[in-house]
Amino acid sequence: MKVTLHVWRQAGPTAPGRFVRYDMTDVSPDMSFLEMLDVLNQQLIARREEPIAFDHDCREGICGACGMVINGRPHGPQRATTACQLHMRTFPDGADLWIEPWRARAFPLIKDLVVDRGAFDRIVQAGGFITVRTGSAPEANAIPVPKRDADLAMDAAACIGCGACVAACPNASAMLFVAAKVSHLGLLPQGQPERSARVVNLVAQMDAEGFGACTNHGECMAACPKEISIDFIARLNRDYIKAAISHRQG
């Protein structure tokens, strides 16, 4: 199949950027989106041009490294699918594809389609962890966890931190990411000791990174490759209000 690509090319954080057109022929419909870019990069290298920089790691849809906006949709048009798991057969022959990096002040661009998602790491460092007992591992079933809580916590823990929620949000808000991190620990007994300090510190860091405010569009949920629900955002708000009012210490 043939595709026409319009890829955002930018040499560095402060360099001017623009869309560059690449016409691709002989694209296999069974290629993943990233494999198609690999083929293009091989062609660029053969022509002694700079290859397109893009993030990727596991290519199994579980690491959260890849991510680009394809035709206005983070990770492309297919629901619950990362860019690496997206196949070229998703697109019609002769498709026009516009490929852009995540756009957010908190995700500064490094090169081409690569952005610095360190803001997410700093949010997690602000309290996305639990106190653990050092020494011998405790008996796995010693702490009872209700089935419903375990399932909900697992739904939230499915977050791979790819940043598609921020990319899709009209406000560039990170509420879904923070909601997932706060909920998956806050739902489990192991997460209770730091529960209120965690939500207060994560939210403070989120604001400090310069993300926007949630206005309940729900675009994050539609873009999330793990289909994390905005119900977790309501849970985050509830936890935050409780913690901010009671200001109980960790």
Binding site: H6, W8, F19, V69, N71, G72, R73, W98, E100, R103, A104, R105, A106, L109, A168, P170, N171, A172, S173, D207, G210, F211, G212, A213, T215, H217, G218, E219, M221, A222, A223
Partner: peptide
């Protein structure tokens, strides 16, 4: 609104609305 408008200084070529 001010926080949200300043959170995306460089806009997209096009961002498709899905859920809103």
């Amino acid at each position: 609104t001010r926080a949200s408008w300043s959170a995306r200084p460089v806009g997209y070529h096009g961002l498709e609305a899905v859920e809103t």
